[in-house]
Design a binder for these strands. Sequence first.
DNA 1: GATGAATGAGTGTTCATTCAT
DNA 2: CATGAATGAACACTCATTCAT
Lengths: 190, 190, 190, 190
Amino acid sequence: MRIKDELKQDAIIQATVKLVNEIGFVSSSVAKIAREANVSPATIYIYYKNKEDLLVSTYVDIKQKLSEALLKNFDESKPFRDILKTVWLNGFEYVAKNIKHYQYAEQFSNSPYSDLVDHVKVEKHFEPMLKVLQKGIDQKVIKNVPHEMLAAFIFYPMMILSNPKLCKTLELSNENIEQAFTLAWDAIKF
Amino acid sequence: MRIKDELKQDAIIQATVKLVNEIGFVSSSVAKIAREANVSPATIYIYYKNKEDLLVSTYVDIKQKLSEALLKNFDESKPFRDILKTVWLNGFEYVAKNIKHYQYAEQFSNSPYSDLVDHVKVEKHFEPMLKVLQKGIDQKVIKNVPHEMLAAFIFYPMMILSNPKLCKTLELSNENIEQAFTLAWDAIKF
Amino acid sequence: MRIKDELKQDAIIQATVKLVNEIGFVSSSVAKIAREANVSPATIYIYYKNKEDLLVSTYVDIKQKLSEALLKNFDESKPFRDILKTVWLNGFEYVAKNIKHYQYAEQFSNSPYSDLVDHVKVEKHFEPMLKVLQKGIDQKVIKNVPHEMLAAFIFYPMMILSNPKLCKTLELSNENIEQAFTLAWDAIKF
Amino acid sequence: MRIKDELKQDAIIQATVKLVNEIGFVSSSVAKIAREANVSPATIYIYYKNKEDLLVSTYVDIKQKLSEALLKNFDESKPFRDILKTVWLNGFEYVAKNIKHYQYAEQFSNSPYSDLVDHVKVEKHFEPMLKVLQKGIDQKVIKNVPHEMLAAFIFYPMMILSNPKLCKTLELSNENIEQAFTLAWDAIKF
DNA sequence: GATGAATGAGTGTTCATTCAT
DNA sequence: CATGAATGAACACTCATTCAT
């Protein structure tokens, strides 16, 4: 027998991301994805239980890579602000390099498919970051507010500024990224 | 006959919003929307050119109402921070009362339908707010950064904190809303 | 609006019966049935909830017509044997004239779709016949055995002899039909 | 290796019969049969040319075993009625013990696959029985009517009474089986 | 001999839209 | 204005079968 072809599976994921970006979630049919991936529609069902599974798996895959990217060069021993800055820059770098994957994730997380994701599992990768946040709170470096509120002023602005759909005219120069970080930092610092 | 018409059109919009919330963009077919609105599918095509038109119009409708809500009690003569606070509270109130409409808009703005919207026109309603922002900059009350960056730290955190899909565990007490405003204000203040 | 076209519905039923006869239950797809009926596949779903519903309805329809045919000229006041003879001849006549419908019913009743039929309702049409059978038993004209056993020696042999699939070489002359009735009568008479 | 092979082939046949009984002819795909038999779909194509071949072979297999069962303890020298009685009882015993195989055969013989069977060959196994029937006719023990008509009053009632799909409420007690034989005998006896 | 990967053609069903009334 | 009937095209998915190992 043949063995599962990882190239094929990768082609399917890439095709999914590409199509969802180009024509949107609604119009991305299994047949079109298959054609884009140079694969038979039936082949997709070897690797994924159904369309839902394909879309969810692709999302989880992206989320994992995003969290890995964010925590690149993560060094708990550094000063709190430096850690945060590193994550901030990592975020912009990832989105710049993986804009399509990022936008796929955006579309996905606002769709009802999102309910099917095991969010606890996905967010586990961010745990080190959460620990650091808590340490910052304990050391009175940042404000003592719920983690989700902190995230709303650190990670989401980053996402929004990176998203050309939402931020149509703002150029993402290094200067702008630095400036935005100042705002984020001012928001949360004690 | 005018009254009857408007009732019908409103029923269609309500049905659209309801269905998109319950079963998502992908599964919301014209036939289902018609059934939900107690109307024939053909009737929808009397009020809207096609499905696209229906979805876009519904979005624009919601956006307009959102902007009206945000600018409720807008008084240019008040101190800058007070103006902002009013908008902030208006925002939370609107989303709390119109969560379904809000989530429809969220799903829509991340879909490719979004490209069909005349964003210039939609954002025109926010102009008074933008003027105030600029005045704040000129008077050195807030930081001199691009408007979009300011928005990313005022309006989007508001949206995110209001969105139960993104903020699953945070209770939206008055205290939390106040606290979040402090963060937003600290982010942008000069 | 247009009104439901009974000719269309009839064409669908005829196409269903014809195709199931020609290519069998397994191969009779909705698309093929639609093509045979000169109708769009989607049209079938206006008249029937799904394929299952189409097949079951067609069966029930045939069964009803069969029971009507069997009870043609039914006259309770006649002697028992005459009543039975009339039914017997009606049966052969019906099958001869409606061989395709009959064979559809045969295929259907041996398929698992059969479980979906409300048999109580279908068999209600035979009730007058059952009453007569019971009277025959009470008057000691026929043997006192369960109705189903009587049916196995009256109605089923009729069906089998009529079925060219099961009875490949037997010519169904009037003489043969008469002869067969003698056997049936001898089987059940007191 | 011979033993392993036969086990596999038998598993395939058993799986076919089981599935056709449980989900019907229409839904019984090669893949499902393979899974049920704990075998790869490709393996089935080693033993059978194609699906058709599998289904037909399974039918012929069952038919052969049925005819063997019917002719168990067949003794041409016994009185005609006793021979018939033995066959009658054998029939009920077989169906009771092999209800699934029997129902498979029923479904099959009403499907168009049935046309692919070499019926002459299949019916050859019944030849001894036909000879006995002819002797009964010649000796004026039973009526001089075509063999198929005799069969319609002996073998088919047996089949029908045994078939829980057709005979839903009749309990197959020994008494009932005896009683039914009386009817069959009365039908054909001279 | 035996396997699971692979597939084009097909499945039942729903789609957005138009038509006749 | 409003309708439900009608449809060709598309949908997600499964089919019987073949192929490389």
